[in-house]
Design a protein around this nucleic acid. Structure first.
Lengths: 142, 142
DNA sequence: AGTAATAATTGGAATAATTCCAATTCGCAA
DNA sequence: TTGCGAATTGGAATTATTCCAATTATTACT
């Protein structure tokens, strides 16, 4: 796979939003793509620092926020904890494993989101749906 | 409706968990039942103080946590904001209205949760599911 | 190229929500 | 009625995030 491909996608998305492509934004995004384990901002910060040692935590927050605005990344909140970041753009749910604390992406079969939308009463217009499972993943998984 | 009914339920749930029924716990619970608008801990604190002026915020947090443990209340988290509390025990989703900031309960037709569980791959055992819609409620609703 | 205008980054301070902790107080049981 | 564990309390501490003012980078224009 061409490493420039995603960088391209990023630049384009930023451009169409009137934003600039910067080293910080590129590295933050590439870090998210590299290891899709739903890291927190702090975790992203730690990983990015090995490539960009002078980046600040505030910038990491800014970049993540920007990526969310561009719809390249989803911000995910489980219970009280810190926000986690997910670069998976396919329609998917999250499975939160209570024993390991890990979060798994669960791809959704086509139609699931539509059929959920249909249970809404008149007058409710949903722009997005989030589905979160909580339980145990008995199986060894990444 | 008998006002003692819910208090009864509370005492029983607490008892079976080896916990005590206290005035603080009872009032916090009754406040949640009285106005089901998904208040934050701070909001609960404010409401409870009119009945129990000397209660502390820490106790409100403790009571809410206890009620969640007893499965009498659900803790709900939208994006970054503070945790909100919901005494609705029926299977329901949440609709978060982005224009008003309000949260509506959406009752789920029977079978929805089961059919969602069925999309999980082998090895994933879900104990609970949360469904959150985000959008606009065009209609005037409580 | 030179420069103004604008956008992005930075570090640190500030805020918000929640948890922790040690000291009291309460309620039940012997 | 005394004692023990549970619950409450107030305040300090912690965590996650946002804010802000100063600097730095990038772009557009001449």
């Amino acid at each position: 796979m061409a490493p420039s491909e995603n960088t391209e996608a990023l630049s384009q998305r930023l451009a169409t939003s009137g934003l600039r492509s910067t080293p910080q934004r590129e590295v933050v995004y590439s870090i998210l793509l590299k290891k899709r384990d739903h890291p927190t901002a702090d975790e992203v910060y730690a990983r990015v620092r090995s490539e960009l040692p002078t980046i600040s935590l505030a910038t990491v927050y800014n970049c993540l926020e920007t990526l969310v605005q561009c719809d390249l990344v989803r911000a995910v909140n489980f219970e009280r904890g810190p926000t986690r970041y997910c670069p998976n753009l396919r329609p998917h749910a999250h499975f939160h494993d209570e024993s390991t604390g890990r979060t798994h992406d669960i791809d959704l079969p086509p139609g699931v989101l539509d059929s959920l939308t249909r249970i809404l009463p008149e007058g409710f217009d949903a722009k997005s749906i989030e589905i979160t499972f909580r339980g145990q993943a008995t199986d060894g998984r990444s």
